[in-house]
């Protein structure tokens, strides 16, 4: 009976304190992941003051026995009044969207090729994909500075071959940011795609060919539709974190590269405006909450 095999009931008896076991990681995440958001929300309604901590309290204990609530929407109004913030959100959306598409195209061809490689090569190729995924993000972004900067390796190489005469200005532009994002997030795209493509039944393509479908058409009508779960997972894994990316625009982008992660960082570390930084975070979270939930749903489905 399949019904009984997945029935988790007897596991109740495995841990006598079943609820205690659930509670350990649950409470940890509640306290250190969920609770912090409540503070961000709270502080986003506070006012900046010169004090430690640099924000006002929402509850004012006055003469009456009930505290009065002094919440201000000023921070949010501020975000909408200064075009910088709106532009930064829109620019982040644009950069995240375009780089997700580009990463998908490059990642798909690599994942597809690894999945179709001869068996004995596949393990080592997969390993080569995973390796950069483990290597420090910061270091990988840093590696591109030496290549892309005006007197960098790329320009030196191109000029010595004679393709260009004047160095290309790539560093500190949006182009450098795109290169950095694609480079850093490529493994996140390849892994779910590979996991999906590797499982795909090759006889489906043979069946398509047998029924008179050309390989290219079979790719579009069989392979691509079947790999949609992998595509979705990969795109979520790239799009969502890129929306809040800080390191790449900070190190590779120029002054005109606007991304909301960098704005948040600046508000917090340089302007010391915690309430505005919180409002920026809350708004970013509001944009991302739907994609994050979709991602969670797709992952749960994939596991079960």
């Amino acid at each position: 009976m399949n019904l009984t095999q997945t029935n988790p009931n007897f596991f109740k008896s495995i841990f006598n304190g079943r609820n205690a076991v659930i509670a350990i990681p649950y409470i940890w995440l509640l306290l250190l992941f969920l609770l912090p958001f409540i503070y961000v929300l709270k502080i986003s309604f506070a006012e900046t003051i010169y004090a430690r901590p640099p924000y006002s309290s929402l509850l004012i204990w006055g003469d009456s026995w009930l505290p009065s609530i002094k919440a201000s929407f000023d921070n949010y109004l501020f975000l909408f009044s200064d075009s910088l913030y709106i532009k930064a959100y829109l620019s982040s959306l644009k950069i995240a969207f375009i780089s997700t598409i580009l990463t998908l195209i490059i990642g798909y061809s690599i994942a597809y090729s690894v999945a179709r490689a001869p068996n004995r090569w596949r393990g080592i190729l997969l390993m080569l994909v995973i390796l950069p995924f483990w290597t420090s993000f910061l270091i990988r972004v840093y590696a591109w500075i030496g290549i892309l900067k005006t007197e960098g390796l790329l320009n030196l190489a191109l000029m010595s071959i004679g393709i260009i005469e004047k160095p290309l200005m790539i560093m500190n532009t949006d182009l450098a940011v795109y290169i950095g994002i694609i480079y850093s997030y490529l493994p996140f795209m390849i892994l779910p795609l590979y996991a999906n493509l590797e499982k795909m039944d090759m006889s489906l393509l043979e069946a398509a060919a047998d029924l008179g479908c050309r390989p290219f058409k079979a790719f579009w009508t069989v392979t691509i539709p079947l790999s949609i779960p992998g595509i979705m997972a990969g795109c979520f894994l790239v799009f969502i974190p890129v929306m809040g990316e800080f390191v790449i625009p900070d190190l590779l982008g120029g002054s005109e590269t606007l991304m909301i992660g960098k704005v948040l960082w600046t508000e917090f570390f340089y302007n010391r405006d915690w309430p505005v930084a919180s409002a920026v975070a809350i708004l970013l979270l509001a944009i991302l909450v739907v994609p994050i939930m979709l991602y969670q749903r797709s992952q749960e489905k994939a596991i079960s």
Binding site: L29, L32, Y39, L237, P241, G244, F246, G261, I292, Y295
Partner: peptide, 27 residues
């Protein structure tokens, strides 16, 4: 909620996690 709290940190922008955790510690 539990599985949400497991999956969300994996994609959540780090600046949000960093800021929110810090604000709680300060509070």
């Amino acid at each position: 909620l539990f599985s949400g709290m497991i999956y969300a940190p994996m994609v959540m922008p780090e600046v949000i996690i960093g800021l929110s955790t810090l604000l709680m510690f300060v509070a």
